[in-house]
Structures are given as C-alpha cells and as structure tokens.
C-alpha cells in the first residue's frame, strides 16, 4: 500500500472548511435530484389543480403532521448532539444521536402505516390503482408523485440514520477520532437538509385543498 495517503490540506481548519464546502455542493446536487419530481408536481398542480386538491385530501394529514413534528424534534436533537460533541460532552452527544435515530425510526414507522393504509385504499399508482370519482388519471399522477417524493425522501432519511448509528456506536466505543466533532457537524448538516426537504413536501402533499372547506 502507498505510504500514508497524501494529505492534501495544510491544516485541520482548511480541511474542515473543505469538507463543509463539499457537503454543500452535494446538497445542491440533491436539489437537482428532487428537482424533476418537484417540476412534475408543479406541472400537475397547474394542469390538474382540482384533481390535485381532491387527491391531497385523501392523504392522512394527522399522520403527516405527526411526522413533521417528529422530524423537527429530531433536528433539534441533532443540533443538540452536535453542540454536545463540540464541547466534548461525548456521552451526552451519543445519547442525543440515539434519540435522533429513534425519532427517525418513528418517522419511518408512521410513514409505513400511511403507506399501508394507502395501499389498502388502492391509491398506490400501480396495476391495482382505483379511484372512484372524476379525475382518476390526475389523482393517480398525484399519488405517483406522493409515493416517489416520500420514498426518495425516506431513502435519504435511512442513509442519514445509518450515519447516525455508525457515529453513535463509534463514540460509545470511544473512537473519538472517528467521531470527530467536524464529522458530527457534517452529519448534522445532512440531517437538517433531509428535514428541510420534508418541510417542503408536507404542505405540497398534505395541505393542498385543505384550507377552507
């Protein structure tokens, strides 16, 4: 194997800045990744305004709101975890990472419940889709976007949770170098991004057509 990997940076601070910069660019690519789906949503919202409102009313707004609360809390826990790690309160940080992880699990469980009931209501846009009422085709399109956006979001959430689990276990075992404050901060940045995406998805998918009537 090569001699020690060529360390390209002059000092730790420069490296930290580069890591953060790199992660921000990565988050830009994530925006472009969600972009086509959001574009498809915008297209449908304009073309099939009525059908989208009808479809949105069939989502479970209670569970959706619960999920929003869970994710926002998880972001708070994550921010606290980062702060704890920075001031070297490693045990506290580990605990907070665990709480964040569990809140993420809870989100997934709730999402799973929603998916299950939507499947039973024949809202999954596969061969078994059935919707009584006009605009069935546009409603199906809405639910395609609903499942695609929330599923891609959930995948990103799972990646985030894996990161948290890895760091939590490493810190619990005393691998302070591996779980350096810089890295926990980056994981936090990623986690907040996943949360922000949800904050956009929630009104787009759940709150359409619910104002007023």
């Amino acid at each position: 194997m090569n001699a020690a990997a060529a360390e390209p940076f002059d000092d730790v601070r420069q490296r930290a800045r580069a890591d953060t910069f790199g992660l921000w660019i990565f988050l830009m690519t994530e925006l472009m990744f969600f972009g086509p789906l959001l574009f498809g949503y915008w297209f449908g919202r304009v073309e099939y305004a009525h059908a989208f409102a009808v479809a949105s009313r069939h989502t479970d707004v209670t569970l959706g709101t619960l999920n929003t609360a869970l994710l926002l809390s998880s972001s708070a826990a994550m921010a606290a975890a980062v702060a704890a790690r920075v001031r070297r309160a490693t045990r506290v940080a580990t605990g907070l990472l665990l709480i964040t992880f569990l809140l993420g699990c809870a989100f997934l469980v709730v999402k799973g419940l929603e998916y299950r009931s939507e499947w039973h209501e024949h809202l999954f846009p596969g061969a078994g889709f059935a919707f009584a009422g006009e605009d069935a085709a546009a409603v199906r399109y809405f639910y395609f976007l609903y499942f695609a956006l929330t599923a891609v979001h959930a995948l990103h959430l799972i990646v985030g949770m894996t990161l948290l689990a890895v760091f939590a276990i490493a810190l619990w075992r005393g691998a302070d170098e591996f779980g350096a404050p810089r890295r926990i901060e980056l994981a936090g940045l990623y986690w907040h991004f996943v949360d922000i995406v949800w904050i956009f998805l929630y009104p787009l998918l759940y709150l359409l057509g619910r104002s007023g009537a």
């Binding site: 994530e30 472009m32 990744f33 846009p125 596969g126 199906r140 395609f144 695609a148």
Partner: peptide, 19 residues
C-alpha cells in the same frame, strides 16, 4: 442528478406502470 431521477422515473414507469 436530473439524469439520475429521469432514469429512476423511466424504471418506475417500466416496472410499475405509473403512467
């Protein structure tokens, strides 16, 4: 990333017939 999503949509269309 736009290509990535486009290919995913294509695969979803082919596998699930989403429309």
């Amino acid at each position: 990333p736009v290509l990535a999503m486009t290919l995913l949509l294509l695969a979803a269309e082919r596998l699930l017939g989403v429309g």
